[in-house]
């Protein structure tokens, strides 16, 4: 088991290294103006000075080497455009916790609402609950989030008699953003659970359990639900990451100073140091998420063992 995990982590490091190198080279293909907030009003001498100072006149492999050297010593670089001359770590520090809180709350809500909903729909297959749930799922998938988020904010705040913008110290103002963020995943989990449970209900072991005289609710939760949950658990960490990245709409609407819109923002402003740092962060979370997901699957499902390559599922 330890060998397997260490192998996975080694692989993860190599992957991270490659992703970062590719992104590093990619962002360096962009015009140098990204390094200077005042580029359009600077003289040529100023620009040349700046480029030399930043080491941009060096060959790519030297730049790449320096980047990784700095990275290993914990230096993510300095933002040049997004916030002139401020260390990237200093910018990210207050944003990460907030995104984590919102993301995990949203994930929690979507699990707490999505799973029971799926179970209910499966139990009432073809009846009212099932249809109602289907309408909800279809609606969430069909209408662009950009549209219904705005509706929720406008009418939700009016209905709740609260301010339109987010205020971390007022618990009421957390409700709508978290709710909005979890909607997509609620639909997704409900759909997933329903589908698997409906499939599993026809299986022989369920028939056997019925014949054995087990209570239907016990069959549902002890046997069927667990089997349905296993493959989904694998994607939970990834889905958490997607929730955070996908929170860009919510963050811009409610003025939440999180990570969601940051990547888009710094890419558009060509702040290379920030782009790299955020890609590093997201890629790391993504990769660790995949490993975690595989581990969870191995642990939850007795049929899968560490010996087999997790890729061959």
């Amino acid at each position: 088991m330890i060998r397997y995990i260490s192998k996975r982590f080694l692989r993860a490091f190599i992957t991270l290294f490659i992703i970062l190198s590719v992104v590093f080279i990619l962002v360096r293909q962009m015009p140098v103006e990204g390094y200077f907030p005042n580029y359009d009003k600077m003289s040529k001498a100023q620009i040349e000075n700046g480029i030399r100072q930043l080491g941009l006149d060096q060959p790519m492999y030297v730049q790449l080497f320096r980047f990784f050297r700095d990275l290993l010593s914990g230096d993510l670089g300095i933002s040049r455009v997004y916030r002139n001359n401020v260390a990237v770590t200093e910018i990210l520090a207050p944003k990460i916790p907030l995104s984590l809180q919102l993301g995990s709350l949203a994930l929690l809500v979507s699990l707490l609402a999505g799973l029971p909903m799926g179970v209910l729909m499966a139990r009432h297959k073809g009846r009212f609950f099932d249809h109602l749930g289907t309408v909800f799922i279809v609606f969430i998938q069909a209408v662009p989030a950009a549209v219904y988020y705005l509706f929720i904010q406008l009418y939700g705040t009016e209905w709740m008699h609260i301010k339109m913008l987010f205020d971390a110290s007022d618990w009421k103002s957390w409700i709508l953003p978290v709710f909005s963020m979890s909607l997509g995943n609620i639909a997704y989990y409900a759909m997933w659970v329903r589908r698997y449970m409906v499939d599993e209900l026809n299986k022989d072991y369920v028939q056997l359990a019925r014949i054995k005289g087990l209570k239907s609710s016990k069959i549902m939760f002890r046997h069927v639900f667990r089997n349905a949950f296993v493959p989904m658990a694998q994607y939970l960490p990834t889905s958490f990451l997607n929730t955070v990245i996908g929170s860009i709409y919510i963050e811009s609407l409610y003025s939440i100073p999180g990570m969601g819109g940051l990547l888009v923002d710094v890419i558009k402003r060509q702040d290379n140091a920030m782009v790299q740092a955020i890609v590093l962060l997201f890629a790391t979370v993504g990769i660790i998420g995949l490993i975690l997901g595989d581990l969870m699957m191995v642990i939850l499902d007795p049929r899968i063992s560490f010996g087999t390559k997790a890729g061959n599922r």
Partner: peptide, 17 residues
């Protein structure tokens, strides 16, 4: 996992402020 996530909340919010 669930606790780790909710824990971030309790531990990090004071530092944020």
């Amino acid at each position: 996992m669930v606790f780790a996530m909710t824990a971030c909340q309790t531990t990090t919010s004071p530092s944020a402020s």
